[in-house]
Amino acid sequence: MHRSPTAARRARRPRLDLRGAVAVVTGAASGMGLESARLLAARGARLALVDRNGDALETLADELRAGAASEHPQVTTHVVDLSDLDAIAALPAEVLAAHGHVDVLLNCAGVSMLGRFEQLTLEEFRWVVDINLWGTVAMVQAFLPALRERPTAHIANVASLYALGAPAGRVPYVTSKFAVRGFTDALRHELEATDVSVSAVYPGGVQTGIIHHARVAASVPSDVAARAASAQSALYRTTAAQAAERIVEGIERRRPRVFIGRDARLTDLVTRLAPVGYWSVMRGIVAKAGDTSAPA
């Protein structure tokens, strides 16, 4: 059977060797970003760590520089708020000056917001989308020219289980993550004839601090928000280190889709089999996590 040149190119794409590769990791100060940075370093990558928490970045950088298992990788830290598009645009020059090239871009940074749609202001909604979507888009646009210069390069964008199924009570987050999913798929198609491969990463419930550090809509009482956050975190089964194993393996193998956790795989299956009816199942699982209504 004859295959197109593009299909043949995809089939013969080599595995990405992380030894000596330069990886830019956003959200590196905590959670999946931090654990992915540790694992990338352990496999010989040089790292440009990006986060808005400068102190936590420096702590991680010191750990990686000192760790024998990481072969003393070259590590730089870059304090950037991903809602600041000018700061993102200036970042490649800073990274290239330190490292010379870029082979991997891993977009892990993300935020969440507690509150149902009618409880939110547009400013609160926009804050989530600005970081989760526009931060990801801007990072890719900024670093794609450098990635295109490499013989083997990869982009991995972390979406979410909530980019597969859309629960009530998380409208801004779902909106941003479905958009990241669509952006990533379309970008993969645009780049299929190049040496840059692209992954969409779908974590299920991962034990990170995102939900307990989520912003809360101003109209939601703090005790109600705490109740919803606790219900959400009770659904998390996968550790950040386990998630990082899947992410880094996906980068090395240049997988187009990476699922983390049984819950993500099941959600993918159920939403394809029952694109409307899946909510009757999902509702019972996440109802308390999405309930930010005050007691009557």
Rank of each mutant, 00 (worst) to 15 (best):
229 A>N: 05
59 T>K: 11
92 P>L: 14
2 H>P: 15
223 D>A: 14
1 M>Q: 15
95 V>F: 12
174 V>D: 12
206 V>Q: 10
245 E>H: 02
27 G>T: 03
96 L>M: 03
143 F>L: 07
261 G>C: 05
155 I>F: 04
209 G>N: 15
77 T>F: 02
147 L>D: 07
200 A>I: 06
136 T>D: 10
271 T>E: 09
88 I>D: 06
273 L>V: 08
142 A>I: 02
189 H>W: 03
1 M>R: 15
21 A>P: 01
83 S>D: 11
32 M>P: 06
260 I>V: 14
37 A>N: 13
133 L>K: 03
27 G>C: 03
74 Q>I: 09
175 T>G: 10
268 D>G: 08
62 D>H: 09
261 G>Y: 01
69 A>K: 09
171 V>D: 14
289 A>S: 08
63 E>V: 00
258 V>L: 12
3 R>V: 05
119 Q>E: 15
86 D>V: 02
18 L>P: 10
214 A>G: 12
6 T>E: 12
68 A>E: 11
192 E>V: 05
24 V>F: 10
24 V>S: 13
151 P>H: 03
115 G>L: 01
40 L>I: 09
49 L>E: 02
82 L>S: 04
204 G>P: 09
193 A>F: 01
151 P>A: 03
235 L>F: 04
64 L>Y: 05
268 D>F: 06
17 D>Q: 12
5 P>T: 05
103 D>R: 01
116 R>M: 11
227 R>H: 05
